Simulated scan of single mutants.
Amino acid sequence: MSSKLYIGLMTGTSVDGVDAVLAEVSDQDFTLVSSHSHDLPASLAADILALCQPGDSELDSAGKVSRQLGRVYAEACHALLESAGVAACQINAIGCHGQTVRHRPGPDGFSIQLGCPDTLACATGIPVVSNFRNKDMALGGQGAPLVPPFHSRLFGVDGERRAVVNIGGMANASLLDGETLVGGFDTGPGNVLLDLWNQLHNGTPYDAGGCWAASGKVNKPLLKRLLRDPYFRQPPPKSTGRERFNRQWLTQHLENDLPAENLQATLAELTARSIHDSLAEFAPQRMLICGGGAHNQDLLERLKQNSGVPVESTANAGLDPDWVEAAAFAWLAWARLEEKPGNAPVVTGASREAILGQVTLP
C-alpha cells in the first residue's frame, strides 16, 4: 500500500462524543497527523445509555442506534479529513471501535459494539475495520482491554517499569516492563460514577478538574465498603463496564445523610485507590495517564498520594491523552490490513495471538 494513512474512531463508556484521529502508520513509526472531536446528538447519547442496561425492544432500538452512529461516525471522518486537507481516497482504512452496549466475558462471552460499518463505509468510500473484540473472546480471552499492545509500541522505555492508565468511563492499565508488555486489565470505574453523581447534583456533564470532589471529604467507611466489591479482588485477566458499575450499583451503597460533595470525593478516591491497588504487585516506577481523567487534577493528585511515584500525562511521552484510544484503533486497523496480531494473550487470556477485526468494503 502506497499510503500509510489510517483513521481511528472511538466512543467510550462516557458516551460524551466521537474521538477521531488521522495517523500515519508503518512498521517503524506512528505519527498523529490530525484529530477531531465530534459531538453526539443528545438524543442519541440518551438512547445509547438506555441500551447499556436491559430493557424492552432492545433489538429494534439497537438497530436504529447502530445506523445513526454509523452516520455520525461518517460525519466525524468528513470533518477530520476536511480539517487535515486530505482526500478520502488517500486513506487505507478506518478503524472503528464502535459504541459498547454489552460486554460479557466468560465461557460463552461476547461483546457488542454499535455503529454500522456498512453505513460508515458507504458514506465515506473508505474500507472500515470493526468488531475487534469477539475473535479474542472466541479464543477464550476477555476481548479487553485491546489498547495495551499499542501502549507498548508507543510508551515502553528500556529500564523503567511503566503503567499506562487510561481513565475513561472505566479505567484500564497496561503494564510495561521496559519495552515488554507483561500485563493489562480493567481496574474498575474511572469517570463513570464521578460523572453520574456530578450530573445528578450539578447538572453539568462532568466535574471539571475534579474541583467539586476536591471540596469534599472522603468517607472512609463507605470507601471501604465500595472496595469490597469482588471485582477489585478478582485476578487478571479481567474486564468490566457499565453492566457492573452503574447507577444501581452506586445507589445500593448510598447513605442518606452523606453530603453530596463528600460522596464525590469518596468516588474519586475509589477510582484512585482501585487503580493503585491493582498495580501494587507490579510496582510501577511511573504512571502515564490518558483519557479524560488526565485532565482531572484532583484525581491525579490522589493517584500521586496513593502511589508515591511520578504521575503524568502521556503528552510527556509523545501523544496527547485525549487521542490515545482513537489512535490505538487506527493502529489496529493497520495491523488488520497488514495481517499482524492485534491482541495480547498476556493481557486478555486468549489461547493465542490473533488478527483482529472484520473488513467492510464501501
Rank of each mutant, 00 (worst) to 15 (best):
M1V: 14
I7E: 13
G8A: 01
T11G: 09
T11S: 14
S14Y: 00
G17D: 11
V21W: 05
L22C: 07
D27C: 01
F30S: 07
L32A: 06
S43H: 12
P54C: 03
G55P: 11
E58C: 05
A62R: 09
G63R: 03
K64G: 01
L69D: 13
G70P: 14
R71W: 08
Y73C: 07
Y73H: 15
E75K: 03
E75T: 10
A76Y: 02
E82Q: 15
A84K: 03
A88F: 11
C89K: 14
A93N: 02
G95C: 03
H103Q: 08
R104M: 13
D108R: 10
Q113C: 09
L114E: 11
P117G: 07
P117F: 12
L120A: 06
A123I: 09
G125R: 11
F132I: 10
R133E: 08
N134E: 15
L139H: 04
P148C: 01
P148L: 12
P148F: 06
P148H: 04
F150T: 07
F150K: 08
H151G: 06
R153D: 07
F155A: 07
G156I: 04
D158C: 10
D158W: 12
R161L: 11
V164M: 11
I167R: 05
G168K: 04
G169S: 05
S174T: 03
L175R: 11
L181H: 11
L193C: 08
L193R: 04
D195W: 09
D195T: 14
N198E: 05
H201G: 01
D207M: 01
A208I: 09
A214D: 02
G216H: 07
K217C: 12
L222Y: 05
K224A: 15
K224E: 15
R233P: 00
Q234R: 15
Q234E: 12
P235Y: 12
K238C: 11
E243G: 11
N246K: 13
N246I: 14
T251N: 12
Q252W: 04
Q252F: 01
H253G: 04
E255Y: 09
N262I: 01
T266W: 07
L267W: 01
A268G: 15
R273P: 07
R273I: 02
S274Y: 00
I275E: 05
I275G: 00
D277P: 05
S278G: 14
E281T: 15
M287E: 02
G291P: 07
G292L: 05
A294H: 10
Q297E: 14
E301Y: 03
L303H: 04
K304G: 00
V311E: 00
E312Q: 14
A317Y: 01
L319Q: 06
P321I: 14
E325Q: 02
P341L: 06
P345T: 02
V347E: 09
G349P: 13
A350D: 01
A350P: 13
R352F: 09
